[in-house]
Simulated assay, not measured.
Amino acid sequence: MSSQEIRPYDLEKQAEHATLKEYDSTYRVNYFENIIIKVFSTTNTNRFQAQSLDGENLFELEPLGEYLIGASFDYKWVALEVSWTPNFLFSSVEKELAKSATNISTSLNFFYSDQWRQELKYTYIKGFRNNRVTESTSNIDFSNTVFNLIQGSTFFIANPNFSFRSYYAQTERQLKSAGSFIPRMIYSFAFTKPNLVFEVPEVNNLDEIRSFDIVAQVGYIHTFVINKKWYATLGLHSGAGSNFSKYFFVNNTEENFDSIFFTYESEAAIGYNSYRWFFGLSGNWRNYNNNNNESNQFNRDFGFFSLHLGYRFNDNKPMRKFFGWFEDHLGF
């Protein structure tokens, strides 16, 4: 059998899945019986806008590791992904500053059912630059500042004929143009070690910041398909959330803050998606706009541009048996 020919077993499982989940198989086709390997490169333009507690200084912090490479593994209902910034991707100007800098992200994503999706992600960033330098902040070193983020999101794809998997992870292919409303709940816990020491008696140095966010968001994503293989996807989302933050100081005192904020997100992608090979470009921009800058550790402006290339391999019977247990007993 040619490597480009789809196995009869795969065709049977695709038809079975469409019948079980009650969607129109002329709109989407899944590749759950394939092992899907993807490599990607990402330009990470995350920016964190922080205000000093006295309100005198405003910092616009950006990770020194702004370029990442990564890989993902997808099979059936589960997806594992890791990305990082290797040393050679740090700019030559910041080589010395970035000696101890790190930027790494890992994620685990899966579907509860055909339309309910769960995402879990951990991000660790060490080393920032300040893009808003003033006379009073020019000598502050952020190269040892550490940011940790644990984030989860749960969302529902309202239209069963729209393939979110095709757009996000390429475990499916959208065959005909379709779109869907997607309500989503996002929750995250962040803890930050500024590692900044001001040798001034009246300054109470900040030791750590811990914060919890919960966001309710609603959006719409639409994929336009040409000749069943070429696609373009556009999405817009908005929502509101609450932030609860606690500041810990070196003199063992604490301060609590909370705020309401609004989120805006846009995303776009173009690419090619065939049976075996797929590749594409995607971009995303998200803004968390707090109504009170002091009540949160950061105003956040997240953005990325990503290039990916992937291939689908045939699976084997031992893998089907292991992952099939979860499908049979948990309904994935």
Rank of each mutant, 00 (worst) to 15 (best):
L68N: 08
E56I: 06
S245Y: 00
I35W: 01
E60R: 10
T171V: 13
F322A: 11
Y167F: 15
N284D: 10
W277E: 06
N314F: 13
E56W: 00
D315L: 07
N144A: 13
S266Y: 12
N291A: 08
E12S: 11
E327F: 04
R173A: 15
F332S: 02
S306L: 10
A71L: 12
N256V: 01
V215L: 15
T223N: 13
F326N: 04
E199N: 15
L61D: 01
T26H: 03
P8H: 03
G219I: 05
N291W: 06
V133T: 12
N287W: 02
I260M: 07
Y187L: 14
L309P: 02
D315Y: 06
T106C: 10
G127N: 04
S282V: 05
L236Y: 00
N299R: 11
S138R: 14
H17S: 12
E66L: 04
R28Y: 02
Q217T: 07
E254C: 00
N291I: 14
A178S: 15
F248S: 09
T45I: 11
F88N: 06
S3K: 14
L58C: 00
L20Q: 12
N161L: 08
V133P: 07
A216P: 00
I260T: 14
R300P: 00
Y247I: 00
F304Q: 10
D315Q: 07
Y311C: 11
G65P: 05
I186V: 15
A98N: 05
E119G: 11
Q297T: 03
T123H: 00
N144H: 14
D114Y: 15
Y275H: 14
T45Y: 08
D74P: 01
F326S: 05
N316G: 13
E56H: 04
F278S: 06
S245G: 06
F162C: 06
N273Y: 01
E327H: 09
F305K: 06
F332C: 01
K126M: 04
N46F: 12
F302E: 08
L53W: 00
E267R: 14
L89Q: 00
L97M: 12
P318K: 15
E12W: 04
N144W: 07
N290G: 05
V29N: 02
W116F: 15
D258G: 05
S52P: 01
